[in-house]
Design a protein around this nucleic acid. Structure first.
Lengths: 167, 167
DNA sequence: GCGCATTCATTGGCCGACCAAGGTAATCTG
DNA sequence: CAGATTACCTTGGTCGGCCAATGAATGCGC
């Protein structure tokens, strides 16, 4: 015992044969998230937070409601994430003088460094993800994912996200 | 306000332009999971649990360690999920007589009905996901996802899952 | 101007997922 | 055979997500 590395092949249930893509999506997503987590770790971010920060860097001071709209996540998710990001010093929040129930959010100054770290991580993640795929295949994958996204938005629920991406 | 439906287009940060696929994966995964959750709700399952059940239906009584290997998840995740599934009556657990630290897991009898419900949900999910894609595109998507999966397994961490799927 | 409906944000609860640590049992050494 | 190692599972904590319910402030209709 030592090497062997346990090639125990995880197997997927033959029941999943009826939905190969549906089986693959969560698996790929989980691996992708894990990979992102490792790359983001030096930056002190958890996967998911980088997206939030990207929006903030781009938008400057924004209303939280606007941010919610941009990231398209549940309001409660955003609230909690922002609380953590604030405590970590990446984000500042203050009441909106123009609307006393709203909150303005913006990235703090440490962002400069952080932003570049995140960008680098993001680039490496993409490379790692798409290694070995030629430009044509990458484009194809992007297209197919967009269409899947659009599919998943319609019918069972409406989601504005895909509409934009379909352009 | 009423109609209008807020087409407010969620936008993705231009920073994400450097990693379009990396941006798309979590989004698609989240939508997919949500859709799965809705379809699985009648069955009384939460997304992720159906995979576990599928493995159990296929394998019969299994050691938990084996199950962990099959689903390729963290042991603690499996433990907790099984505790919930057990409480919900979908699963039974008993000590392995042959190894007193191990636990044998198996699906309960309500499974018959449940299994068919899940299978139907799974089929519908796949249809919904891939609506509008012709067989060629579906196959292509499957292939690309497999390759991405294989990529994400190597290097930054080893994951046995993709090795099997590469065949 | 008053009241009702909306919008904004937060809280609490729940789940899947991870890591780190721990306890017990089997196994592999010396 | 005794001691160290390894395998198996659990517990506790943390995060990202969701839903449901709540409280505050704004805005609308009348």
């Amino acid at each position: 015992m030592k090497a062997e590395t346990e090639r125990a092949e995880p197997v997927c249930p033959s029941a999943a044969a009826g939905g190969p893509v549906s089986a693959a999506i969560p698996r790929v997503a989980r691996l992708h998230r894990t990979a992102a987590g490792k790359l983001l770790k030096d930056a002190g971010l958890y996967p998911g937070q980088e997206l939030m920060m990207m929006h903030l860097w781009e938008a400057g001071a924004v209303r939280q409601s606007e941010l919610i709209r941009m990231v398209d996540l549940d309001p409660s998710t955003v609230t909690k994430m922002l609380q953590r990001l604030e405590q970590a010093g990446h984000v500042r929040r203050r009441p909106d003088p123009a609307d006393r129930r709203a909150v303005l959010v913006e990235a703090t100054e440490d962002s400069g460094t952080l932003m570049r770290t995140v960008e680098r991580a993001w680039t490496r993640l993409e490379q790692h993800t798409l290694a070995g795929l030629d430009p044509e295949e990458r484009a194809q994958l992007g297209r197919l994912l967009s269409r899947v996204e659009a599919n998943l938005c319609t019918e069972t629920a409406d989601c504005p996200a895909a509409a934009g991406r379909r352009a």
